[in-house]
Design a protein around this nucleic acid. Structure first.
Lengths: 467, 467
DNA sequence: TAATTTGTTCGTAGACATTTC
DNA sequence: GGAAATGTCTACGAACAAATT
């Protein structure tokens, strides 16, 4: 018998007990789903606590736990220990950053790749198509990439400081695709992966699709804090860790050598699988060998992703996946089951652009453009010396405390003709500390346009007291 | 206190009670994993029953249930109600059918696409690369495919009997990739999908990676049996169904119109998501409109995959994904998170090959080649009229009862220089009924070679009393 | 065919960790 | 800083379902 007697409307969600069929927890989720769909329950609403609802329905509270757990899996709700369970703010929407930008909006959102030099690839493609026999590029063969292509890859990788053997590299359909392959190959639903408190949105999203839980770890200017990671490992069963050692997206932080060493110790002692994402690796051409590689410190547990999309062209989907031998079988099986194979044609274009030197030409041009965009930013924002970082592709601007949600701030700017992203988008879980804007400098392909766009941005930021 | 006293070695697996740490179920799986790795426990071994082991360890038997469940998730074991729990025969191996065939073996294994006409694409590729500006093919834009490309697709689809609007089609990186996108978008771990008792290996594998359970349903010559599907739906909570309505792989069965109607009724009444895989759709060019489409019967719950790899070239990874509007958001989000986008270049080549008619030329040539291969098969096996089907790309040969396992039979033939696949590979769960061999006719690109290979195959089959 | 064996599902109880107040 | 609130994890007992004998 219930101990408490509840007056009408005392709970935000009051499922009717007599309509519940067994299994009760599923029936509860069904009821919740219906009420969210029909707008009876709105995103952000706090649901009754497990014990409260259990009392009301005269059930054991862990039955409610199960219902809330299932509804979390379905992305209907999320729970915070000590606080409560809430209806997910992203019900029926998703924070996935998509490349759609059809309108005349200023695009500070998407991190792109200064694509105005893509035409340099025309000759490479023409040369490939004029080969007497391109049959070998059009068959099922070589699902992980042709030997010749992997050899060229190895040669390029050496230039940017990565050493790998022919048996430990596969070609994927880009960096994001590599993440999918890795998550499906090496992790199960409900596994946990440690990430920076702010991290790559589409990693958050693919982890959600694979039902892998992300555990946010705090960071400072040198990168993730090893003590915080250690603490999390000791209090959770964590299976892996995702890091962007170089110009982390979105914070722009590069992990210092010292920090890499202490992080590696923690990762080793808790036997985590390290996923190392080097999406801006080509900037390393300038300072090869200047820093320690995580994979050198942790050779048997590091999986490295080198995406070629930012370095060359975002439309050609090619990335390199580097792995220790013990993961090879799982990763190759996963690659075949996710993709069958990577397009040999795309892979060949990237390969030939590396062989002919066109790729390097493009990379140097991109670096110059990025440098110039960066200079423009620094000129426009010269009164804000704290924003002067050397994160070439994007900026990370701290905001004053505001009562507005991230969503509201983004739509305010969009209304003003500027697409940009608020730090909330990059959050794995709630956070009431500092908030930021991420300003991509890499999607606007014209120096003059960029300058006037930045001036407009600065004016708005100051006018509405954001910075 | 345990009731029974066990003598030494009475159980196939005897974890030491004093080494078990809490959580016990995880500790048990760890112990099992170690013993499998170190070959103390071999694949196929029957493990103690849940109650037996619980008794021995003085635990509640559902704690063992949990341990066995986790080990099944990790692909270490599988359980059969009423029979017991066994160590998975595929521990550390995988039945994924890979395109590797580097040696001189006769390849009756892989279903390929009569690729000797791939050179016809050379001009298409050359024309694309000679366009004054191919920049638009090399950027992040149009993740689900350019409008122009989707329009051409719609036009082709009409020719093979599929009607779809521009808003309900996306371009994926091939059919397998579409399956990945669908499973991640619309299903969760532990969901159940009904499939034919024998089904596409790489669907079994991607389902395993996504931790989705497949429920095998019996079939007859007209396709899956609706009563069996109904029974399964009533006794399980089934979320979806995967069908290949046309020349199902590997059985070669096409679902009759009558059967489609009764299946659709069951699918509708149990609200299943139907995944319809049309990998050999282009054979329909010959008999457009001759059969009912499942998606016409179930317009709001059918997702259709039209892979272009078999129709044109297996190396260009392009497929079309057709969906009702209610699934659009989930599927597009999943596509972006799995791939970011499909290679626009590959998509454009397929598109232009359709526009210029080269694609149709290739398809007709493939059909002729397939017809010829089929005739050759029928000639060689003329004494076996029961094998005379019109399954153009492969054959399905019933075997006499044998004590040999599928693996053994495959390796017997491989030893004789012939790669082929035994029906065990296509099984979702055990089956002691009829066994088969699948003989692909589509990977050998030379008529003479095919004939002598088939003669060799027939001689071996008869000599060793397989048929 | 009926009884038995065996794996599966669900609701329950207690111990625990984190956050809030 | 400590007590209370709240979600999470693990083990357990009962009812159930499928396969075997």
């Amino acid at each position: 018998m219930p101990i408490n007697i509840f007056s009408e409307n005392s709970l935000s969600w009051m499922p009717q007990k007599n309509t519940l069929k067994r299994p009760i927890y599923q029936s509860l989720v069904h009821d919740l789903e219906e009420k969210i769909k029909s707008n009876i329950l709105m995103p952000g609403t706090k649901l009754p606590s497990q014990r409260e609802l259990a009392d009301y329905l005269d059930l054991n509270f862990t039955t409610i736990t199960r219902a809330y757990k299932l509804s979390e899996q379905k992305n209907l709700t999320y729970g915070v220990v000590g606080k409560g369970t809430y209806i997910s703010p992203t019900v029926n929407t998703s924070p996935t950053i998509t490349p759609f930008n059809t309108d005349k909006t200023i695009n500070f959102g998407l991190i792109s790749a200064f694509e105005e030099n893509n035409n340099l690839l025309t000759n490479v493609i023409a040369d490939i198509s004029s080969q007497s026999n391109i049959n070998h590029l059009l068959t099922y063969d070589s699902p992980i990439g042709m030997t010749s292509q992997r050899k060229v890859a190895i040669n390029y990788l050496k230039k940017i400081g990565f050493s790998v053997s022919l048996d430990n590299i596969a070609i994927t359909s880009g960096g994001q695709n590599a993440l999918t392959i890795i998550l499906l190959a090496l992790f199960n639903a409900n596994d946990k992966i440690a990430v920076d408190r702010f991290t790559y949105v589409n990693f958050i999203e693919i982890a959600k699709l694979a039902q892998i839980k992300l555990i946010p770890i705090d960071y400072d200017s040198a990168g993730m804090i090893p003590e915080k990671l250690k603490y999390a490992c000791e209090h959770n069963h964590i299976n892996g860790i995702y890091l962007m050692p170089y110009f982390a997206n979105p914070t722009g932080i590069s992990i210092t050598d010292e920090r890499k060493i202490t992080l590696a110790q923690v990762i080793k002692s808790h036997d985590l699988v390290l996923i190392e994402d080097n999406y801006l690796h080509f900037l390393n051409i300038f300072d090869i060998g200047s820093s320690i590689q995580m994979r050198t410190l942790l050779p048997n547990q590091t999986i490295t992703i080198i995406s070629m999309t930012k370095a060359i062209s975002t439309g050609l989907r090619v990335g390199y996946l580097l792995f220790p031998s013990k993961y090879k079988h799982s990763l190759v099986t996963s690659l075949i089951n996710v993709n069958v194979k990577t397009s040999s044609l795309d892979a060949e274009i990237i390969t030939q652009s590396l062989v002919t030197g066109v790729a390097y030409d493009m990379m140097y041009k991109k670096i110059a453009l990025a440098q110039h965009a960066n200079d423009t930013f620094n000129t426009v924002f010269k009164d804000y010396p704290n924003l002067k970082t050397n994160t070439l592709f994007f900026k990370w601007i701290p905001l004053k405390k505001s009562t507005l949600s991230g969503k509201k701030i983004e739509s305010f700017f969009l209304h003003q003709g500027i697409r940009l992203f608020h730090s909330d988008r990059f959050l794995v879980s709630e956070n009431d500390k500092q908030t930021f804007l991420r300003i991509s400098l890499s999607a606007i392909n014209n120096a003059e346009t960029l300058k006037s766009a930045l001036i407009k941005l600065k004016t708005l930021l100051e006018q509405f007291d954001y910075i």
